[in-house]
Design a binder for these strands. Structure first.
Lengths: 190, 190, 190, 190
DNA sequence: CATGAATGAGTTTTCATTCAT
DNA sequence: CATGAATGAAAACTCATTCAT
């Protein structure tokens, strides 16, 4: 039964991490304060530093966790056709009211100033890029690696612009991105 | 004689704006404080609020000014070939140690939470996008507008990733982006 | 079997007291917190208040215990010559890297603000002073009591200065202190 | 007239330093908080960090300033006889309700953990010791330097003990200290 | 005996902004 | 035009202590 307290503790931790992800996208990374975070998570401010060493540590864990979870839920398997995969990727940007898409940009910028976060984010993006490149290669793409780089960059950039202008037409961009995915048709029309 | 004082005032204003642009990229939008700003500009802290209504107003003016200046100094005229234009655009990201490239992302994210800034940034990006689309159209591109959108997004995304990982190979990405600029070769030339 | 738990409890108590003595000299009386103390003692933070009524109570017991133990291990018996006794006393300051010597000053200052501690420390110093005076008297010193007072003060002061400047020459001071111990030679050499 | 604000600022600074000296002796070095300090000085808490970079910086300046002032007001000139000088030195401990005398011990202990303060205090004590040694030498003392060391230590120690036990008889100690000042009578009167 | 979650008051420090001069 | 003092709110973080389990 002693576990009950421990269980509650874990719940609080999870609640704080979830609240952090929400608030990073709503207010921006640097505007997430312990008080606001505690209020959103429904706990007293003092608890934040009981469960986490520091606010940056909490934000880092929350952001990298969310990003890792995102990568896991968008599996690009060889069975997925190039066009369906593109639909999936662009679709994630369109969903959610600007929410998760801003998390990436916020986290990248924060990582610029936090070596620890930079390392963790670097690992995640490297893994995602290589998984993306593998998917492209499985479909016979001649230059999977640089293409994955550009594709990821374009998606992050589109998410940023979409947050700025919700009227942005993402559907129209799919046709453009397809030109990247199908370069084999390029040059040799036979 | 009063001109001298007026001249000095203008100089101080310019100095503050220039310092703000530097600091936004170095420390992040929300970490730029009046004191740090005044110190970097070499003026007394009290002067900041003498020349500007508020700190956000100063940052907004500094950021939009720098972005507008950037667009002006990268003129995409019809004389410029597609490949040379691409070199020019990608080149701006490679230059400067992550400095100016982060300004865009910082400003976009800040604009997400500041309606006034959002309007101003929206105008600038719309202008840049339409200038980019015009350049593409002048070279016979079949879908200039969505292509301009994707290209801008990709460039902003690459700038963000480059700041995170300075080892990022931008040269390799040029070949990929070229597939976007030359879609006419694609698929069915009939 | 219940003895085992009791034994463990006593061990924890001792461990906390020993850790407190270390930390008082390392960090200063007021910088010793329950968490740091628990960590040093290798126990969980909650245990501190299980074994002791309060943190000040723990510190008081630790400090007075260590001081009492010190007095016991430096026995000034009549068999000990004045010069050998002086060597012994000054020697205790030179030993240990500033460690135990600071405990006295820290405790005196803390006692200044804690009536309970003051009483306990007062008893200990009175006992030590009277033992020191007895030793001096046994060697025929004409003014044992004030001399003991000055000697104790000088030793505490030297310990304080030694902690500040480890290069302090304690050997040279012995000759000076000897003048206090041998006043009988003074004046009437006859 | 613009100077009026500046003048007030200087006054506030002085007030904070004076309050710090009082509070260090009353509450102990580590118990002096910005709030308590501001309240004692009669200013708002925010002002503390306007005038001083940090609380330790304020305390360091206050303590070293007071100690330096003390050394200046107790001038040991050659004209002063050994016995009169001793009266003067011991007298400073007896005066003031434990106030200034504790400042030294508090500062020494704080200097143990603050390199910057240690350096400054080291310079002050070195200067005082050498002035004391010079005074002893001018009276023909055979071992001025170690004697000055012991004398300073004894005075600091007596101040500490006096604060602990206000009933401590300082007058009786003077006779003992005199044995240190007049060692020439000792041993070999020829 | 022991644990770890929780609390609320406390700490230093930074900040944008105002204003008298 | 410019200065620097002042203010009050807010920031992150630490703490001793309590208590349910």
């Amino acid at each position: 039964m002693e576990r009950i307290a421990t269980e509650r503790g874990r719940e609080v931790r999870r609640g704080l991490l979830a609240a952090a992800v929400e608030l990073i996208t709503e207010l921006g990374w640097n505007a997430v304060s312990t008080r606001i975070l505690a209020e959103r998570a429904g706990v007293r401010p003092g608890l934040v530093h009981y469960h986490f060493a520091s606010l940056p540590a909490l934000l880092n864990e929350a952001a990298t966790g969310a990003i890792a979870r995102f990568a896991d839920t968008a599996p690009l398997t060889a069975e997925l056709s190039l066009d369906d995969g593109l639909d999936l990727l662009v679709g994630t940007i369109a969903e959610a009211p600007g929410a998760i898409s801003l998390l990436f940009s916020e986290t990248y910028l924060a990582a610029t100033r936090d070596p620890d976060l930079r390392r963790r984010v670097g690992e995640l993006t490297a893994a995602f890029n290589s998984s993306l490149a593998g998917w492209l290669a499985s479909h016979g793409h001649p230059a999977p690696s640089p293409t994955a780089t550009v594709l990821t960059a374009a998606l992050d950039g589109l998410a940023l612009h979409k947050a700025l202008d919700p009227a942005l037409d993402l559907v129209g961009t799919k046709a453009v991105l397809r030109a990247i995915l199908h370069p084999e048709r390029e040059g040799n029309p036979s």
